[in-house]
Measured scan of single mutants.
Amino acid sequence: TSIVNVSSSLNVRSSASTSSKVIGSLSGNTKVTIVGEEGAFYKIEYKGSHGYVAKEYI
């Protein structure tokens, strides 16, 4: 489990790309479970499925 480190919110994306669809967002200090990594993104558990967040904010 890791913590989201942002002051406002962090986009959760459908794939490991800044141009991919935003499927949701997480607020600062939210706990997330990392299940993998791809480039500059972590794959996380998100709403019963998976999403991707930028590593620099975790």
Rank of each mutant, 00 (worst) to 15 (best):
S27W: 09
K43G: 01
L26G: 01
Y46K: 00
Y42M: 04
S49A: 12
E38P: 00
N29P: 10
S25Q: 15
G48T: 06
A54V: 08
L26E: 01
G36T: 03
K55G: 02
S25T: 15
I44R: 00
E37F: 05
V32L: 08
I34V: 09
L10A: 14
T33Q: 08
Y42Q: 02
V6S: 12
G36R: 03
N11W: 10
G28A: 15
N11H: 14
S15K: 10
G39F: 04
K21R: 13
K21Y: 07
E37T: 07
G51I: 02
N11Y: 11
E38F: 07
T33Y: 09
S27K: 14
Y42L: 06
N5G: 09
H50S: 06
S15W: 06
T18G: 10
S2G: 15
K21E: 13
E45F: 11
S8C: 15
G39I: 02
V22F: 06
V6W: 05
I58F: 13
K47I: 06
G28Y: 13
I44E: 02
V22K: 05
E45V: 11
T33S: 07
S25W: 14
V53L: 05
T30V: 11
G51E: 00
T33W: 09
N5A: 10
K47W: 06
V12T: 01
G51F: 04
S19E: 12
T18V: 12
G28S: 13
A40W: 07
K31D: 07
A54D: 10
N29L: 12
V4D: 06
I23S: 02
S20M: 02
G28K: 14
L10T: 13
V6G: 11
V53A: 03
N29Y: 14
V12N: 00
S7K: 13
G28R: 14
I23E: 01
S20D: 03
T18F: 15
Y46Q: 00
R13N: 07
Y52E: 00
K31F: 12
V22W: 05
Y57P: 05
E38V: 09
S17C: 09
S20N: 02
I3T: 11
V12W: 01
S49F: 09
S2L: 14
V12L: 03
N11F: 10
G36C: 07
V12D: 02
V32F: 07
A16S: 06
I44T: 00
N5H: 12
N11A: 15
T30H: 08
N11M: 13
S20E: 02
I58P: 03
K47R: 09
K43A: 05
N11R: 12
S7Q: 12
I34D: 01
S8D: 12
G24I: 04
S8A: 12
L26Q: 02
I58R: 03
G24Q: 02
Y57Q: 12
N29I: 08
E37N: 05
V22T: 06
F41Q: 01
S19I: 08
A16H: 04
S19L: 10
G24C: 05
G24K: 02
V35K: 04
V12P: 01
K31G: 06
S25G: 06
S17T: 09
S15M: 10
S7G: 13
E56P: 04
F41I: 01
Y57S: 13
F41T: 01
G39A: 05
I58Q: 03
T33R: 12
S2K: 13
T18S: 13
V6C: 15
S15L: 08
I3D: 07
V53M: 03
L26A: 02
A40H: 10
V22S: 06
V4C: 14
T30F: 09
N29V: 07
V22C: 08
S17W: 03
T18W: 13
G48W: 04
G48E: 07
Y46D: 00
V22A: 06
S19H: 12
T33K: 12
S27A: 14
L26H: 02
S2H: 15
S49Q: 11
T30S: 11
G39K: 05
E56I: 11
I23L: 09
Y46P: 00
F41E: 01
S14G: 08
T18E: 13
V32N: 01
S14D: 11
S17E: 07
F41G: 00
G39V: 02
K55V: 05
V35M: 08
V4M: 09
S17R: 07
E45I: 13
G48A: 06
A40D: 15
S20Y: 05
S19P: 05
S17K: 07
S20R: 02
H50R: 03
S25D: 06
E38R: 05
T18L: 14
S9Y: 10
A54C: 14
G36S: 07
E56S: 08
A54Y: 11
V12F: 01
Y42V: 06
V4H: 08
K47E: 14
F41Y: 09
S17G: 06
Y57K: 09
N5M: 12
Y52N: 00
S9F: 12
R13Y: 15
S2F: 10
S49P: 00
V12R: 00
S2Y: 08
G24N: 02
S9C: 15
T30Y: 08
T30C: 10
G51D: 00
N29M: 12
V35W: 05
H50T: 10
E37L: 06
N5I: 15
G28P: 15
G39E: 06
H50F: 15
F41M: 03
V12E: 01
I44D: 02
F41A: 01
T33G: 07
N11P: 15
G48L: 04
V6N: 08
E37C: 11
V32P: 04
I3W: 08
G51M: 02
E56K: 12
I3P: 07
I44Y: 00
N29Q: 10
V32W: 04
G36P: 00
L10S: 06
E38W: 07
F41S: 02
I44N: 00
N5T: 14
E56Q: 10
S27T: 11
G39W: 03
S14N: 08
E37K: 05
K47G: 12
T18H: 15
R13S: 05
E37D: 07
S27H: 11
S9G: 12
L26C: 05
L26R: 01
I3M: 11
V22R: 05
R13H: 15
K55L: 03
Y46G: 00
K43S: 03
S7A: 12
